[in-house]
Nucleic acid binder design. Structure first.
Length: 766
RNA sequence: GGGACCGUAGCACAAUUGGUUAGUGUACCGGACUGUCGAUCCGGGGGUUGCGGGUUCGAAUCCCGUCGGUCUCGCCA
């Protein structure tokens, strides 16, 4: 048989199927797992496309000897024959065949791995954040991260396709530009040709897209890098991130919403996460919620709409109350708001304390609450309130026995905000366990017949847990469906059981779960007494789909956020101004948005009542973007800025480019800029933005792989006319923290560095 | 800049809550094994418990400082 002629491969590692049996093929890839049985050696060869099992036997002693020497993550090139497997592996796409190797070359051997690409049993792929960043190219080989980056491409591609299909033109705008009017700190780039002057990296291409509108391009978009020197969050990358930046001329905000909601509504079907349950959009068109409505109902301007538990205004019940905390707040023009947590009292005193601790950790004073029993009412403010007031609350909120009612008071926003935090915390606590986990290991040897058949055919067992569903006196069987054992149409088996101290109550799951592995399972899934647990076995997709269906049913019945649902909304009618900490009038959002009512509103209304054509898009409690219909009228802009203390001259100098453009025929225009990274996080259920970025920075904005930021050569600084002066940065060495004033040094390589004498040895003083 | 939690072998985690020689898994090295597939079994090497100081007869454990990590408030569209 002739050898495949391509120097590296004839097929990929995800390609071989039974129809290739008998062919002679060449594969290249990484040695993923090596299973050495001396007389038989198996190597799983992995590339971007999949995994193929290579086999070696002792008919060729020299070959198998070399196969046994192969170290994980070495790059191999092999030639061999595709044969059918004696025992297929349903977990691999190529699992029906294997490659009987006849030639093996180690193209690029791998040293001992600093982090393992194959995740060891019982370990998390999230462990050792620093090591992951330092060895990012290895981390990126791991299944989940590799998959995330590929899915990110699908998201970005969908965004591009959608925007083009809607008639938008893609642009690239300057990266070296000047400081823009957004509020964050700038990254500055010193200019060599103009010593002492600086470029700024764009915080967003805001000014440029408005220039393009003034230039007549009508519909602009860009997958735009944005640079902001601000501190990180779990969902906010430090330094840089990407937005789908878009802007349109001659539009209302509804025109902008249409483009964006069509893009997001189509996204879940364009991006399928392998092995995960599909996402669906809760409501289309997306609800438009006025800013103050969102605050009043959810206590936040980024409401989580996947479950109810809305806040209720009870100010009228306490207007003349003898309970001073509430009546004083109302007397000062504020509100008293209440949130009913159904069954909240049945979850024990610990649950109330946890909620109280949560709000205290966030800086609130405490959490006044009432506990409604069959007849009596308890709780922290039971003694300070009258029976009439407590009955009024019971009636207003339709309280049942076992409900917990928590209160917030203060200004309209403050009263709602604390309850908004409680609302989210309740949902967080109650939805613990809802995420689907792979638990195949526990059931590897089960003899439960339905499960056994499904595992053998599909290879996967997954599980989720509903916290305390069986405790709350609810009929969990009717919520989830009658039978404890089900076989789905595609051969997927589903087992459901409530949980007691000793384990599952239902026979089938008890039978499937060997007593020896019960503890392992309980630890893995987090089962506790009163929980209800569902497991499904079959293919990766089949088991996910079956569980997803069950879970959605439970979430609906229990008022929990369904992990498979995307609840988008637009928040509209933001206030144009607000008062800052010193009580001064300030722009509440973007100073370049158009006030509703235009110049007349600015002249005649109380500034705090003026609304802006300013909006946000949120999903599942996460802000994806804000945007606005812009203010393209210089006279309105001067007046708007005047109110916050800017003179005409200041506006002209600071925003010269914009004002100039708007004085030469600018179209009405508006847009928004949804975050690309956050969109991907949402779709992939990733809790941290680093999981969807190929080369992220750590919290302190360092790239541990590239070693950025770093010192530069002394001559570079001289060319730029710069000196380093750390006198305003304390008297500690930035490396070791010792109390030794850092000094500038030029080290042996010519780098200009800062540190104490101990940290930069051998350096000569600059 | 503030707060919370964390830091033990390359990596993940233990250490009966202050008590003998700091353990287990994985990775690494060696051995056994003819169909494995997260292989299994046996053996071996590997530790300044982040660093500095303090309390104590005795510190991985308690206290202070510091460095590093994650989350969070401030900040941020």
């Amino acid at each position: 048989m002739s050898e495949p002629s391509h120097p590296h491969r004839s097929h990929t590692c995800g390609e071989l199927r039974p129809e290739h049996i008998g062919q002679r093929v060449k594969l290249s890839g990484w040695a993923y797992r090596v299973r050495d049985q001396k007389h038989n050696v198996f190597i799983d060869l992995r590339d971007h496309y999949g995994v193929t099992q290579l086999t070696f036997d002792d008919s060729q002693p020299e070959l198998i000897a070399r196969a046994r020497e192969v170290r994980p993550e070495s790059v191999l090139r092999v030639v061999g024959n595709v044969v059918a497997r004696e025992k297929p592996n349903p977990k691999l796409e190529t699992g029906e065949v294997e490659l009987r190797v006849e030639r093996l070359e180690v193209e690029s051997p791998c040293e001992t791995l600093p982090i393992q690409v194959q995740i060891p049993k019982g370990e998390s792929d999230r462990a050792d954040e620093e090591g992951r960043l330092r060895w990012r190219f290895l981390d990126l080989r791991r299944e989940r991260l590799h998959r995330n980056i590929v899915l990110r491409d699908q998201v970005v591609r969908h965004m591009r396709d959608h925007m083009h299909a809607e008639g938008f033109v893609e642009f690239q705008t300057p990266i070296l530009t000047n400081s823009s009017p957004e509020g964050a700190r700038d990254y500055l780039v010193p200019s060599r040709l103009h010593p002492g002057q600086f470029y700024a990296l764009p915080q967003a291409p805001q000014q440029w897209k408005q220039m393009l509108m003034a230039s007549g391009f009508d519909k602009y978009f860009q997958i735009a890098p944005c640079f902001r020197d601000e501190d990180a969050r779990a969902d906010r990358a430090p330094g840089e991130f990407y937005q789908l930046d878009m802007e349109m001329a001659y539009v209302t905000q509804e025109d902008v919403f249409g483009v964006i909601e069509r893009m997001y509504a189509a996204l879940p079907e364009k991006v399928q996460v392998p092995g995960a349950s599909p996402k669906r959009v809760q409501q289309f068109p997306f609800p438009r919620i006025p800013y103050w409505d969102a605050i009043d109902r959810f206590g936040t301007d980024k409401p989580e709409l996947r479950f109810g538990l809305e806040l209720c205004d009870v100010s009228d019940l306490f207007a003349s109350s003898s309970f001073a905390l509430f009546s004083d707040a109302i007397g000062l023009g504020g509100r008293v708001k209440a949130l009913r947590i159904p069954g909240g009292a049945r979850e024990g005193k610990g649950a109330v304390r946890r909620l109280e601790k949560h709000v205290k950790d966030l800086g609130y004073g405490g959490l006044p609450h009432l506990i409604y029993g069959d007849d009596e009412v308890g709780g922290s403010i039971a003694k300070q309130t009258t029976p009439e007031e407590r009955a009024g609350i019971r009636e207003r909120l339709q309280c049942a026995s076992g409900d917990l009612v928590v209160f917030g008071c203060g200004s309209r926003a403050a009263a709602a905000k604390v309850l908004g935090e409680v609302r989210l915390e309740v949902a967080r606590q109650r939805s613990r366990g809802l995420s689907v986990r792979e638990v195949g290991e526990v059931f590897a040897k089960t003899r439960q017949p339905t499960l056994r058949a499904a595992i053998d055919a599909g290879g996967y067992v997954k599980a989720f847990r509903i916290s305390r569903l069986a405790l709350a006196g609810r009929d969990w069987r009717s919520i989830l469906g009658e039978e404890a054992v089900r076989a789905g149409e595609d051969g997927t088996a589903v087992l459901v059981s409530a949980w007691e101290k000793k384990g599952p109550t239902e026979g089938p799951l008890r039978e499937a779960l060997h007593p020896k592995v019960l503890k392992t399972f309980e630890k893995l899934v987090g089962c506790a007494e009163g929980d209800v647990v569902a497991i499904a076995a079959g293919t990766s997709e089949g088991s996910s789909r079956a569980l997803s269906e069950l879970r959605s049913r439970a979430c609906q019945a229990l008022d929990l956020p369904d992990p498979d649902v995307l609840a988008f909304c637009f928040i509209v009618d933001y206030p144009f101004y607000e008062l800052d900490e010193e009580g001064q009038l300030a722009f509440s959002h973007n100073p370049f948005s158009m006030p509703q009512g235009g110049l007349e509103a600015l002249e005649t209304q109380d500034p705090l009542d003026v609304l802006a054509w300013q909006y946000d898009i949120c999903c599942n409690g996460v802000e994806l973007s804000s945007g606005a219909i812009r203010n393209h009228r210089p006279e309105i802009m001067y007046r708007a800025f005047e109110k916050v203390g800017y003179t005409r001259e200041q506006v002209d100098t600071e925003f010269g480019m914009m004002i100039k453009a708007f004085k030469h025929g600018a179209p009405p225009h508006g847009g928004m800029a949804p975050g690309v990274d956050r969109t991907v996080m949402l779709l992939l259920d990733e809790p941290n933005i680093r999981e969807v970025v190929a080369f992220p920075k750590n919290q302190r904005c360092q790239d541990l792989l590239a070693g950025a930021p770093g010192y530069v050569y002394d001559r570079q600084l001289r060319e730029l006319g710069l000196r380093i002066d750390l006198s305003a940065h304390g008297t500690r060495c930035p490396h070791c923290g010792t109390e030794a004033p850092p000094r500038e040094h030029v080290d042996a390589h010519g780098y200009r560095r800062v540190g104490c004498d101990r940290c930069i040895p051998g350096a000569s003083e600059a």
